[in-house]
Write a protein that binds this DNA or RNA. Structure first.
Lengths: 218, 218
DNA sequence: CATTCTCTCGCGTGTTCTCGCGATGGAAAT
DNA sequence: ATTTCCATCGCGAGAACACGCGAGAGAATG
């Protein structure tokens, strides 16, 4: 795991408003021979000011509950300053909306302060190697919302042709255009659409398209 | 982390066709005082036969590339036999479709054989405590597909009213029904829909609904 | 060999949509 | 105070759709 001792240490940033915890973390990072943490701030604003001339920042550990700019809001700002950095959220928050927002904003991982220091250091290494370290409870949260999105499709079996037509409809084509594209008559497309209505229990195109997309059929 | 020595060890199952690796794993599990692995099989079939009278199985480590029934297909079978078990996939496969299938089937975690033994043991503990241990590269894969669903919405700002109407359209309502439900005239709904068309650059309801859903606007 | 499924095609009628070309009033911003 | 945005409402013409009621051909199943 540990890289060769000759390599330049990787620059790690730290944004955390609790002074004690920040110092502990910084020390832990700096005690890793392949990592270095020169910039540890207590807010996003302070961090950006402090690193105004810093060329590179490989990983940023980011708390969310910060004075001034909230961590989630800070993510895009940090990316603007350091486009290639990997941001790891490190917080006590484990509420689903916050987690999803942070990850949607581009965070490369989500660790909790309940995690042990070595877990956090391992997380940094994983982020450096292209991984996305997630606290396992956070991972579980993500998986459940992930599976909630596809509620075990209620066994709707459309034919290939029906699926094909449905996906063209979802692109905004009208029946006549679909007929042309498939080289069949308007009536054929119309019949397929009727059959789709029956199977999806809808009565118009928009309903069919909506249902198809939501069920992952198109 | 380690529970008190008085507690009954947790029953761990193991399904892995490589004999050597299976034995190493079993030994590692059994060297944990709070875990016990009495059933280690080389296929799903063998495991189910072997545990026919076993009352409880808290965690099952499951390889995917197995003789006979494939691991992913085995997941529902294992759940049928042990409804409350937590299944952790442990394999070399890291191809997205397989990963997503396994997780959709209900796996509580996904570890790679490249992970260290102590990582795997920690994964078992995390699963026992309600977490979902994910190899960080697998986690990254999940996050990217997660974010791919919402491809950084291209700054489409619909008004609240437009969004409202859009979501009703996505339920299959026709304009007149929407007008009634919102207690406005048909023409009002029609005007809103026209404005939506302009903003989404579409020319019919199904296209608008499709785009809205795909962009997460409805 | 009969049945079932799927894809294909046709017509007519009433309904719904699309869009051009308007308008008014209120709220917010400049 | 003027502009801008938003929500509201109106009409009419032509296009597109929904649906009832058909049909034939080929493939698969039994």
């Amino acid at each position: 795991m540990s890289p060769s001792s000759k390599s330049i240490p990787r620059q790690i940033g730290l944004i955390e408003d609790h002074q004690d915890y920040r110092r502990v973390l910084q020390q832990a990072i700096n005690s890793s021979p392949h990592l270095i943490c020169q910039h540890a701030a207590s807010s996003v604003e302070a961090f950006l000011a402090e690193t105004a001339t810093t060329p590179k920042m490989e990983v940023i550990l980011l708390d969310l509950n910060l004075p001034g700019i909230h961590g989630v809001a800070g993510i895009p700002m940090l990316f603007q300053r350091f486009p290639d950095t990997r941001i790891l959220v490190l917080t006590v928050y484990d509420h689903k909306p916050v987690v999803l927002e942070a990850l949607a904003a581009g965070a490369s991982g989500y660790l909790l302060k309940a995690d042990r220091l070595d877990t956090i250091l391992r997380g940094i290494d994983e982020a450096l190697s292209g991984g996305a370290p997630l606290n396992s409870h956070i991972a579980r949260m993500i998986l459940t919302t992930f599976n909630a999105v596809r509620p075990a499709a209620p066994e709707i079996d459309l034919t290939d042709r029906e699926r094909e037509i449905l996906s063209l409809l979802a692109k905004g084509l009208i029946k006549k255009e679909i007929a042309d594209q498939l080289s069949v008559s308007y009536h054929t497309v119309d019949t397929h659409v009727r059959n789709i209505y029956g199977k999806l229990k809808v009565h118009n195109l928009s309903g069919a398209v909506a249902k198809a997309i939501q069920l992952g059929l198109a």
